[in-house]
């Protein structure tokens, strides 16, 4: 399944200014991800996993080296180009869901489709399909404050998946969920990965997530410490 390379990271370094000095979060990372992978960047806080995820998500740029996502070099993308990449090809799932609080479930999931200028009928069909994947078709009118944490994260997954992106980037998606909800969410993501061939890239240090990953990249102090591929 994981044959075509869709993310290619070469000698990637990312530094942040800290007062008069610099803090290097990523130190010459080399990684490649293929289509349909279910992989995770694993490591403690400060290991650089979120930084790497943000660069892959074109929310940040490398200080040096290169990150190519779906053939686009992140460092040389314009703001418009990066926005287009995120809009068309990438889906995001965040630790704290980041749902639009004043919009209901339907509107939250519909949002990426609005940006892609689908017609109202197309949007409705696609939103209902995405909500069906996550089992929330009965909550279309509910607003995020009326939902449980697990339901919010399922809405976030539906929002990330509704446009059928090539890559979904999930940053600590289960950090705010209990064990039962975490497993439920992860099973949904595994199912979508298998059915839609979407590449999932996680940033996590949660054991529950790690157990579901088919590929685990352990980061330590900005370096790749281990790159494990499960055989099952």
């Amino acid at each position: 399944m994981e044959n075509t390379s869709i993310i290619k990271i070469e000698h990637l370094t990312k530094s942040f200014p800290m007062g008069k000095s610099k803090f290097t979060a990523l130190k010459g990372i080399n990684l490649t991800f293929g289509e349909g992978e279910f992989a995770g960047l694993v490591g403690p806080s400060g290991s650089g996993k979120t930084t790497l995820l943000n660069i892959v998500g074109s929310l940040d740029v490398p200080s040096s080296g290169e990150a190519k996502v779906l053939g686009e070099s992140i460092g040389s993308l314009t703001a418009k180009g990066a926005a287009r990449l995120r809009k068309e090809k990438l889906g995001f799932i965040f630790q704290s869901y980041n749902l639009l609080a004043v919009h209901n479930v339907f509107e939250n999931v519909e949002f990426p489709l609005l940006l892609l200028k689908y017609t109202a009928a197309e949007r409705k069909k696609m939103v209902m399909e995405a909500l069906d994947w996550v089992g929330l078709t009965d909550k279309v009118k509910s607003k995020p404050p009326q939902l449980s944490g697990g339901e919010c994260q399922r809405v976030a997954i539906a929002r990330a998946m509704v446009k059928k992106p090539s890559i979904v980037l999930a940053d600590e998606p289960t950090a705010n969920l209990d064990a039962a909800n975490s497993h439920n969410i992860l099973q949904t993501m595994v199912k979508l990965n298998e059915e839609l061939k979407t590449t999932f890239l996680f940033a996590t240090h949660d054991e529950k997530v790690i157990n579901y990953l088919r590929r685990k990249i352990f980061l330590k102090d900005g370096n790749v410490d281990q790159d494990e591929i499960s055989t099952n």
């Binding site: 929310l59 703001a79 418009k80």
Partner: peptide, 16 residues
């Protein structure tokens, strides 16, 4: 701020 970040993550430019 989170909402602004979310708009950007979902495909908006900062200008938008």
């Amino acid at each position: 701020q989170k909402e602004i970040g979310t708009y950007i993550a979902l495909g908006y430019t900062r200008r938008e």
